[in-house]
Design a protein around this nucleic acid. Structure first.
Lengths: 197, 197
DNA sequence: CAATAAAGTAAGTGAATACCTACAAAACTC
DNA sequence: GAGTTTTGTAGGTATTCACTTACTTTATTG
C-alpha cells in the first residue's frame, strides 16, 4: 500500500471552479479543456475525478444546490423559525440573486432535460426547494391561515417563479437593482400574505 | 434576368421547422446538418437563406415571439378590451403553455446572453411582453386601481415569472396538468387583483 | 430557344472537442 | 530504501460540426 487516495478531496476543492465555469459558459460551451485550464490541471485529471463531462456538470448542479440550501439554513438559524423567516429569505434573495451562478446552471440544465440524469437531478432540486419554501411560508404565517391567503404550496410555486424572473431581469438588466428589489418584495408580499413589511 | 429570387418565401416556409428543432434541442445541440435534414434540404441551402447558424436561431426567436404576440392579439380581439382580458389570456396560457416551444427557445437563448445579438433580441422580447401584459392588466382593472392592488408594471413581472415557473413545472412534470392550471389561476389572481374568477 | 440566375447535389475541409494512452515523478507504507 | 500506488505531463485520436466549393439542373424572361 502507498499514497492515500485523495480524489474526493481534490474533487471538492475544484468544485467551485467547475461550478463557476459551467454557470458562465453553460453546459455545451464549457469544454473539458477550458475546465482543466481554469482548474490549473490537465484534462485527464478531470477524468480521474469524474467519469465524464456530464458527471462534472451533475456534481456542479448538486453542489450549487447544497450551497444555496445551506445559506438559507444559516439565515434561518440566525433567528430560528421566527415570524419573519420568509421575509428574511426574500430580502436575502432579492439582494444576492445570481451571485453564485445558481440560475445560470439551472437554465443550462433545463435545456438538457431529455437526458434522464440531468432531468432527475433537476426534478429532485425543484421538489426540495419547493418544500423548503413551503415550510417557511407556513412557519411565517404562524399556523393561522386567513381565508384570503394563497395555500402555502401554491404561494411557494409563485415565489420560485418570482425568483426565476428576477434572475432574468438581473441577467438582462431589465430593471436597475433597487427597482428589482422593490419588485421582488412587493410580489412576494402579494403571494405570501399581507403582513410582510 | 431569370428566375425570381424566392429565398424570403423559402425561409418563411422553413421557419416552423427551424423553430421546432431549436426548441427541442437547444442552440448548441442543434446542428446545421440536423436542421437541413429536418427541413429536407441540403446544408448549403440553409446558408443561402441565412448567413450563419446564429442568424437561423435569431430568426426562430423572432418568429416564435411574433407568433405568441399574434395569438394574444387574436384572443383579445375576439372580445376586445373587456374586463376579463387578462383572465382570458391567463386561462389560455395556463392551458396551452409550451405548445409552441416558446420557453425552451427562450431558455436556450438565456444561456447565450454573452452574445450581444442574442442578448438584445431577448431584451427586446421581454420588454415587449412586459408592456403587453402591463396594458392588459390595466385594461382588466378598468382604470380603477384599488390601494390593495399591486402596481400594474409589478404585477406584470410577477405574471411573467409565473408563466416561466409554470413552464418549468410542465417540462419536469412537477405537477399534473390540472393542478398546474389551478396553481396558475390562483397565483395570477393574487397578482392581478381579487376580482378574477 | 438562348441566355441567365436561382435551386439543388455531393463532397470536402479545417477546427474544435470529448476522451484516451503511455510514461515520469512523487509520496506513502513497510 | 524497496515497492507500490497516486499524481502529474505530454501527446494523440476519432469524431463532430459549422461552413465551403465545385458542379448540375431547373425555371424564367427576352
Amino acid at each position: 500500500m502507498a499514497r492515500p487516495n485523495q480524489t474526493q478531496e481534490q474533487a471538492k476543492k475544484l468544485l467551485p471552479t467547475v461550478c463557476k465555469t459551467f454557470s458562465e459558459l453553460g453546459y455545451r460551451r464549457t469544454t473539458t479543456a477550458e475546465l482543466a485550464q481554469r482548474c490549473a490541471i490537465r484534462e485527464n485529471i478531470l477524468y480521474r475525478l469524474w467519469p465524464d463531462k456530464k458527471a462534472m456538470f451533475l456534481a456542479a448542479l448538486d453542489d450549487i444546490f447544497r450551497t444555496r440550501a445551506k445559506v438559507w439554513q444559516e439565515i434561518l438559524s440566525a433567528q430560528p423559525a421566527g415570524e419573519d423567516a420568509v421575509e428574511r429569505i426574500v430580502k436575502y434573495e432579492s439582494r444576492h440573486q445570481g451571485e453564485f451562478g445558481f440560475y445560470r446552471i439551472v437554465f443550462t440544465a433545463l435545456t438538457e432535460t431529455d437526458d434522464s440524469d440531468i432531468r432527475s437531478a433537476l426534478l429532485k432540486m425543484y421538489k426540495s426547494f419547493h418544500q423548503l419554501v413551503c415550510k417557511q411560508v407556513q412557519a411565517g404565517r404562524g399556523g393561522k391561515e386567513r381565508k384570503s391567503d394563497l395555500p402555502a404550496e401554491i404561494a411557494a410555486w409563485g415565489l420560485l417563479g418570482l425568483a426565476t424572473i428576477s434572475n432574468i431581469i438581473r441577467e438582462l438588466k431589465l430593471l436597475p437593482p433597487r427597482q428589482r428589489e422593490r419588485m421582488f418584495a412587493a410580489v412576494a408580499k402579494a403571494l405570501v400574505g399581507g403582513e410582510l413589511s
